[in-house]
Write a protein that binds this DNA or RNA. Structure first.
Length: 205
DNA sequence: GTTATGATTTACT
DNA sequence: GTAAATCATAACG
């Protein structure tokens, strides 16, 4: 490994297995999401996340500890990928957090392209780099090559991982309500969506 | 076996 | 602003 190129550390179990999913959602902002799929490596800086808190959150698929084949991975220990298909078209990528039997997850909603931009554009069938290439959970997953094939994949393996990066200052993190969870009644009002105020690559303002 | 329904995006009017 | 696309999953018979 060339000594002159700093090798960013992959986030490990101790990061994902903390018990406060909202804190993890904040901490993930600014980190680098990396995928290496079909020999194509793409890196994106995470700019937007949402926290989903297992049993007590009406917006979470695992609300009241509803255990199904789909939600099963969220009950495992933190550090694996929860990917599912939404509206029959979009693959949404989540990071499983917390300990065994605490079904929390963080939805990654947007990234800012860092490298492998040509692969992202090819996957999105686009010509130039605009924010909608990777802003929005379905778009981001498509650009990064994330599909339900990655369901249950370890986040410190060789296909997908997240690299350490300095925490963002709290003053540039904006907290607001989550998107598309109107059905969750009072839990739809929780300020559990976070984004980097300084980034253009955010799905909505 | 059937049926309802989305953690959304895109292309319209 | 509104609507269509499109299918795995979950709940029910």
């Amino acid at each position: 490994m060339p000594y002159f190129r700093a090798m960013a550390r992959k986030l490990q179990a101790d990061f994902y297995q903390r018990t406060d999913v909202v804190q993890i959602a904040r901490d993930l902002l600014g980190k680098h999401l990396v995928t290496e799929i079909d020999g194509k490596k793409t890196v994106g800086r995470i700019t937007e996340t949402e926290a989903y808190c297992g049993a007590v959150d009406k917006a979470c698929h695992a609300h009241l500890n509803k255990r199904t084949k789909r939600t099963e991975i969220m009950f495992g220990p933190g550090g694996s990928a929860y990917v599912y298909l939404c509206y029959g078209i979009h693959h949404l990528f989540n990071v499983v957090t917390n300990r065994l039997n605490a079904a929390d997850a963080v939805l990654i909603r947007a990234v800012e392209p860092i490298s492998g931009v040509e692969h992202m554009l090819a996957r999105r069938e686009m010509e130039e780099l605009k924010k909608n290439v990777t802003a929005g959970p379905g778009s981001m997953s498509k650009a990064m090559g994330i599909t339900t094939d990655l369901y249950g994949e370890s986040l410190w393996g060789k296909i997908i991982w997240i690299e350490e990066a300095p925490l963002l200052h709290h003053s540039v993190i904006h907290a607001t309500t989550r998107i598309g969870v109107d059905y969750a009644e009072e839990d739809a009002l929780l300020p559990w969506r976070f984004y980097d105020k300084n980034s253009q690559f955010v799905s909505r303002r």
